[in-house]
Each structure stands twice: as structure tokens, then as C-alpha cells.
């Protein structure tokens, strides 16, 4: 049994490395358009994985992704022409990390949908305050952002995605990962068995936001100009949540699959038929919630169990505390 699992893990690892090797080669072998396409897809993969890092195991639905993404974008707008690119991107991550510590610390007591709507409001609050400051205090709206080549952006995001995969993988298998799942499973019992639920929740929230901030900072360099409306777009809160739900939170591949499928669809449709995309997105969401409680991954596992008689039905449902 142990050998079999190892063999399975090795084959997964080989597949992942092959995909990564292909992605690394993409800028050399394909058209510029492909690089842009893959860059945008990877961006959603990064956001969705980050979201799932916190919300997957703990069951808290965070809708603050856009706030952390926007914090990254603004960091790039202010520091992009002062600092070298890697440092600037790192600053974006740190800014979001700090913002998440604050939001996390004040939302500790909120559960379930209260947490969701609070985080949603935090995006709007930041957006409106920033807008006001720009108009009345600074006297000008928005800022230009330093431009970086598409292939550089592509590689940075690829690195972020790899970091996320590695972090998620090791976190899941660690003591810390057990603590996170126990919070999602029964928070009160977790606290009474010695888990520091406050620290685990806030730190994981901040860690996931760190990656969102990194992504925002590097993606900003492709935007040329940003303002509060562009940077704090609520869609960046909705999309990762829905993509991860669609893919399934049972394992690490769920969010990746959800993000790849939807962002590819988005790339095809967004320029010519943006509202067809929204319509499909909405419909698929409704159907997923209704008929695929564990997402695509859950469906795949069910099929596997049905036809192969395997014993891999460990997917857990979406939970809300």
C-alpha cells in the first residue's frame, strides 16, 4: 500500500514537472499571445490557490481577495519605478500580509456569512476611501505603473504559483495543516484541545494574502495605469471563490483545475463576448453548488470509486462555521 501511494505520488510529481518544464519553455517557443494568455490563466491559478489556502481548510469564505490584490497593485504603482522588480513584488506581498493581519484581527469573532460580508465590505471601504484621498487630498486620480515585459511577468507568476503549490502541499501535511482543518471541522473543539485558533486563523489568512499581494504587484506592471476602481475590483474577490468552489476544495488540484478552465474560457470570451462569459460563469456556479458539492474533483473521485472501486472518497464538503 505504501509503495503504491509512493508510486502514485511520483507519477503526479513527474506530470507536474513536465507541465512546469513546458511552461518555462513557452516564451521561447510560442507566440507572444500565448504568453499573455498563459500569464492571465496563471494569475487566476495563483489567486484561487491563495484563496483556497485559507478558505479551503478553515471553511471561512473570504471575499477580501480584491483588497489584497489591490494592495499589491498600489504597491507596484508607488514603488515600481523606485525599487528593483523582485523587491517591489515582495513589498506588494508584505503590504497585503500586513493588511490581512489587521482585517484578520478585527474579524476574529465573525463566523460564517458574517465573515464573508465583512470581508466584502472591507474591499469597498478601502476602494472608496482611497478614491476620496486621491481626489481631495492628492488632487489627481490614479497613477501610471512601470511597464515590465510580458515574459518577465509570466515567469514571476509562474514562480508564485510554484511557491503556492509547494506551500499548500507542505502545510497540508504539517501539524499546522491539521490545526487549520480542525478549525474548519469544529472550531470550538479545536480550541479546547489546545489549538491556538486565533493565531492559526490570522496567520493563515495573512499568508494567503501575502501570495495575493505578490500576484497583484506583478500583474499591475501590465496595466500601465491604475486607479482605485481598477485595483479594487470586486470581481477579484468573486472569481477565485467561485473558481475554487467549482474545482473543488478536496485536494490541491481542485482550485487549479477550476481556475484554469474558467480563466481560459474568460480569455476566449472576455474581449468579444464578455457577458456570455458572465452568464456561463453564473450558470456553472449555480449548477456546481446544486449538483457538485465537492466540485469537479469530487465528481472525478465519485466516478473513480464507481467504476474502479477505489477507496479514495476522502473529499470533504464545503463547510461554513
Amino acid at each position: 500500500m505504501k509503495l503504491k501511494t509512493d508510486a502514485k505520488n511520483v507519477s503526479y510529481l513527474v506530470i507536474i514537472i513536465l507541465i512546469l518544464a513546458f511552461l518555462v519553455a513557452v516564451p521561447f517557443i510560442s507566440k507572444p499571445y500565448t504568453v499573455i494568455l498563459l500569464k492571465n490563466i496563471l494569475m487566476f491559478v495563483a489567486l484561487t490557490l491563495s484563496w483556497a489556502l485559507f478558505s479551503g481548510p478553515t471553511g471561512y469564505i473570504s471575499l477580501a481577495t480584491a483588497a489584497f490584490y489591490g494592495a499589491g497593485i498600489y504597491t507596484a504603482a508607488y514603488l515600481g519605478d523606485v525599487l528593483p522588480l523582485p523587491v517591489m513584488v515582495l513589498c506588494g506581498g508584505v503590504a497585503s500580509f500586513l493588511l490581512a493581519l489587521i482585517i484578520g484581527a478585527i474579524t476574529l469573532r465573525l463566523r460564517g456569512i458574517y465573515f464573508a460580508i465583512f470581508t466584502l465590505s472591507s474591499v469597498e471601504l478601502i476602494k472608496h476611501v482611497l478614491h476620496w484621498i486621491e481626489i481631495t487630498v492628492l488632487g489627481k486620480r490614479g497613477r501610471p505603473v512601470v511597464k515590465v515585459s510580458d515574459s518577465t511577468v509570466f515567469y514571476v507568476i509562474l514562480i508564485i504559483v510554484v511557491l503556492l503549490l509547494v506551500t499548500t502541499y507542505f502545510l497540508k501535511r504539517s501539524r499546522y495543516g491539521m490545526a487549520m482543518s480542525s478549525i474548519g471541522s469544529c472550531e470550538e473543539a479545536a480550541a479546547h484541545i489546545g489549538v491556538n485558533v486565533v493565531r492559526v486563523k490570522v496567520f493563515t489568512f495573512a499568508l494567503s494574502s501575502f501570495f495575493i499581494g505578490l500576484t497583484g504587484a506583478i500583474m499591475a506592471t501590465g496595466l500601465i495605469y491604475i486607479d482605485s476602481q481598477i485595483a479594487f475590483d470586486l470581481n477579484y474577490s468573486f472569481f477565485p471563490t467561485l473558481m475554487a468552489t467549482f474545482g473543488g476544495l478536496g485536494n490541491i488540484f481542485g482550485p487549479v483545475i477550476g481556475a484554469v478552465l474558467f480563466s481560459y474560457l474568460r480569455e476566449i470570451l472576455i474581449t468579444k463576448f464578455p457577458y456570455v462569459y458572465m452568464l456561463i460563469f453564473g450558470l456553472v456556479m449555480i449548477l456546481t453548488i446544486l449538483y457538485l458539492p465537492n466540485g469537479i474533483i469530487g465528481l472525478a473521485q465519485t466516478i473513480k470509486v464507481k467504476f474502479l472501486g477505489g477507496k479514495d472518497a476522502t473529499a470533504t464538503g464545503r463547510k461554513v462555521n
Binding site: S182, S185, C186, G194
Partner: peptide
Amino acid sequence: KIFPEMTVFQNVLMG
């Protein structure tokens, strides 16, 4: 108040 999704072993391991 157990952790329903976890196995019995994992529940006790948490402690």
C-alpha cells in the same frame, strides 16, 4: 464535538 471528517486516529492525534 468531534472532528467528523477526520478518522478516529486523527481525532485522537489532534489531542
